[in-house]
Design a protein around this nucleic acid. Structure first.
Length: 544
RNA sequence: GGCCCGUUGGUCAAGAGGUUAAGACACCGCCCUUUCACGGCGGAAACAGGAGUUCGAUUCUCCUACGGGUCACCA
């Protein structure tokens, strides 16, 4: 069989050689140990939360080693393509602070980074394989393939195009020419020399040494429209773009034996592989893959809810590297990127997504931010997702920041909210648009006493008092009205009083904030201002 | 079904042939406290099961169970 002639017959328009591509995409000139990683999504219009895992691993590994992290779009399946998806991907990751050194927007020396624009490259390599007898055209129709599958199912053997089930492996040149002339669609298949009875050993950087069954199937490398399948594109691109570490989901593990053959058939050096376990969620008692339909499966969900990018990154990092939380405790204010990310600390098994933990992590992250920082991020979020609140926040930035400063800073900051969408609930009462008495006084108190307490407070309230003086006055008001000035004393003798100073505080709190619970009332009044504080107190006692 | 991967408290997880088997989240109790948070202290809670190797196994080996992945002209 004249394979060279066959190659010319199939690819008459391909005139460049693989040597040409090898020379224009040379080995990268990087320092020793620098890692080249990539993120290679398909533009299907959905950015999965789980994709953050390989992305973050790739980004950290590359940046930590002085290497390159690039974005490659795998758009070889036009049927599944969604327009605008590319931009979604970029925007989504941008929000989380993930940037790419090279890719469809940044460009780079290994362009194009969109697989649909690399057709000629794939065909050049496919042509070479045909010329070397390592690939061949297959004219089988979908019906024929279905027939084969049915037969294999009946015979209870592994399905696939291999062994005695192969039809087109050794067609002679004239037959091929004839079919080509008739315009019969065809694919290019890899001529596999493997045997499923053989085992191969492989070392994955996360999973360790694993034993796999050799591939024996003549997989398709080029589809009938001339575009490559994932496997072939993976081999060609990751070789030509000089990827050193392939980081992907563990769903690729079963096709690894085939990839190994492909790299070898093409004469490529194998990259290192890291297969990351899937993120699960709990359904009843079963772990399920976090799927498209699940709330929270999409990265955009977190943007909408108003999770700070740092929060999500921090949470993902706790799942990725088991010692991250220890590091964080030792370095509470350090930049996340300073954490020495290590492959060795990655777990080989899949973890369960835990929203509660995410929220806890997020509360911690937000509590470490300055009021200024919170204000900035909050307004960016609100502008898009709560325009009314945004306008209100923008009206008086200094006031908003003063509100956000309450309980912030110091050793033990408040941890009130995990997401920006919660903030309005916490601080809304500072704005008259949102201020409303929603809670009612707890306990059995005489209306007259409540009014008397509020009046008593109003008489002596001075916004220039410090917190101690302020509270002493409340104690005094309590005492004057038959309430115990000390909660402890009250508990010893509950029948001797109408209530205690805490109850008086509750009256004031509800009058001023509308709620039973609030941040420190003294500071609330300070921020609110004497005038508004008094106005609310008057209004409350008059309407009680 | 074949092949592959995995299995330490409810969750994330550390760990080593001999440990009182860390820590975090959640939960419960107590303390602090004018509320809520914060913080502090304490509690309950785990090596999937069965063989084998070994003086000794949760750690090594095998089997079983369970969970997951994959078997496309999708990635």
């Amino acid at each position: 069989m004249d394979y060279k002639a066959l190659a010319e017959l199939l690819f008459p328009d391909i005139i460049k050689t693989t040597d040409y591509y090898e020379s224009i995409y040379p080995e990268r000139n990087l320092p020793e140990g620098a890692k080249v990683t990539r993120f290679a999504p398909s533009p299907t219009g959905f950015v999965h939360f789980g994709s953050l895992f390989p992305v973050l691993v790739g980004e950290r590994l590359a940046r930590q080693s002085g290497g390159v992290f690039y974005l490659r779009i795998e758009d070889t399946d036009s049927k599944r393509e969604v327009k605008g998806a590319e931009q979604d991907i970029i925007n989504c990751y941008k929000y989380f602070g993930i940037t790419f050194d090279e890719g469809i927007t940044a460009g780079g020396a290994y362009a194009p980074y969109r697989q649909s624009e690399r057709k000629e490259i794939y065909q050049t390599y496919a042509k070479k394989m045909v010329a070397e007898g390592k690939a061949y055209p297959c004219f089988c129709t979908p019906e024929e393939l279905e027939e084969i599958r049915a037969r294999q199912e009946a015979e209870k053997v592994t399905p696939g195009y291999y062994g005695k089930y192969v039809k087109c492996r050794d067609l002679d040149l004239d037959t091929v020419k004839d079919k080509l002339e008739k315009g019969i669609p065809y694919t290019i298949r890899y001529r596999c020399t493997g045997n499923a009875n053989n085992k191969i050993k492989f070392t994955d950087l996360i999973k360790g040494t694993i034993e796999l069954t050799e591939n024996e199937i003549d997989h398709i490398i080029l589809k009938s429209d001339g575009t490559p399948t994932y496997h072939f594109a993976h081999a060609v691109d990751d070789h030509l773009m000089r990827t050193t570490h392939v980081i992907r989901g563990e769903e690729w593990l079963p096709s690894l034996p085939y990839h190994i053959q492909l790299f070898s058939a093409l004469g490529f050096k194998m990259p290192k592989y890291m297969h990351i376990a899937q993120l699960m969620r709990l359904e009843g008692n079963a772990k399920k893959k976090l799927s498209k339909r699940d709330k929270g499966a999409s990265l955009s969900y977190y943007i909408q809810e108003g999770y700070a990018a740092e929060s999500v990154l921090e949470y993902v990092m706790t799942l990725l590297n088991s010692n991250f939380e220890d590091w964080r405790r030792a370095n509470p204010n350090e930049d996340l990127n300073k954490f020495p990310f290590s492959i060795k600390k990655m777990s080989p098994s899949g973890s369960l997504f835990d929203l509660v933990k995410l929220n806890d992590v997020s509360k911690n992250v937000v509590s470490r931010m300055s009021a200024e920082e919170v204000y900035n991020k909050l307004t960016v979020w609100a502008e898009k997702h709560d325009p009314e609140f945004y306008t209100i926040l923008m009206r008086d930035p200094e006031y908003a920041k003063a509100i956000l400063s309450i309980g912030r800073g110091g050793k033990n900051p408040r941890k009130d909210f995990a997401v920006w969408s919660e903030v309005k609930n916490y601080i809304g009462f500072f704005y008259n648009e949102y201020f409303k008495i929603t809670d009612s006084i707890q306990g059995d108190f005489d209306k007259k006493d409540i009014i008397a307490c509020i009046d008593g407070f109003l008489e002596t309230y001075d916004s220039n008092d410090d917190q101690t003086a302020w509270f002493d006055k409340i104690r005094k008001v309590a005492e004057d009205n038959g309430f115990c000035p000390s909660v402890k004393d009250y508990k010893d003798n509950p029948t001797g009083y109408k209530g205690h100073v805490g109850d008086v505080s509750m009256f004031l709190r509800i009058a001023v904030t509308g709620k039973l619970n609030s941040p420190d009332l003294y500071q609330v009044m300070q921020v609110l201002g004497a005038e508004e504080t008094k106005r609310r107190l008057f209004s409350f006692k008059n309407n009680i």
